[in-house]
């Protein structure tokens, strides 16, 4: 890991299908927007560096990969996330009503009890608003989450949403420091030979 990066944070984006989760992710990480839904399929996670108050962090932002459609996200999706963005569509009451379920899903599966949550009302560019800004804010206050309204289409609020979330995470003590003493690892194309004389191939 580069020296200037403080840490890598895992951020989740959850909410009903079609509210614009993948679009927000792509707008933020690649500054792109596609009105065709099918093009947001195939997003796994994206990483992006972000500097806040003089600290640089790397964000790994995880898409649902469409597994939210029948509420079948894997528990492993939620593991070790420091931040979660809960998205609804301001033009759809149904997606707003489902936020309660998403919050309880998050409480069930997130492994960090102090995970930072942000409620995002998306698609404010679109005609036919059903949820007012006040209603959204009230919900967020009641559940002690951050709140913002956005449009992945016009970029409104997108950068801000991620910045506020990350700022809050960094300010939360004990949330992002490594917990397992660095003893865990991932498997990768390592050396073809054992790296230490723990093995039998090397001659002593």
């Amino acid at each position: 890991m580069e020296e200037d990066v403080l840490t890598t944070l895992k951020i989740l984006i959850i909410g009903e299908s079609g509210v614009g989760k993948s679009s927000l992710l792509l707008r933020f990480t690649e500054d792109s927007f596609n009105p065709d839904q099918s093009l947001t399929i195939g997003v796994d996670f994206k990483t992006k560096k972000l500097s806040i108050d003089g600290n640089t962090v790397r964000l790994a932002i995880w898409d649902t990969a469409g597994q939210e459609r029948f509420r079948t996200l894997t528990p492993s999706y939620y593991r070790d996330a420091q931040g979660a963005i809960l998205v609804y569509d301001v033009t759809s009451q149904a997606t707003f009503s489902k936020l309660e379920t998403w919050l309880s899903e998050l409480d069930t599966y997130s492994t960090k009890s102090n995970i930072v949550k942000m409620v995002v009302g998306n698609k404010i560019d679109k005609a036919g608003r059903e949820i007012s800004r006040e209603e959204g804010m009230k919900f967020a206050r009641r559940h002690a989450t951050l709140f913002i309204e956005s449009s992945a289409k016009t970029k409104d609020g997108v950068q801000c949403a991620f910045e506020e979330l990350v700022q809050k995470i960094i300010q939360t003590p004990g949330l992002w420091e490594s917990t397992n003493g660095g003893k865990t690892f991932q498997v990768s194309d390592g050396p073809a030979e054992p790296s230490s004389c723990g093995g039998w191939q090397c001659t002593i």
Binding site: G42, V43, A65, Q67, R71, T74, P75, S76, Y77, N180
Partner: peptide
């Protein structure tokens, strides 16, 4: 870490990234 089924969940997630549709309790 977190147990053996992390592996199969990982494969399922990859299937979903490649447009596989998931439906539990079905």
């Amino acid at each position: 870490l977190y147990g053996s089924s992390e592996l199969l969940q990982g494969f399922c997630r990859q299937c979903a990234v490649f447009s596989g549709i998931y439906c539990l309790n079905r």
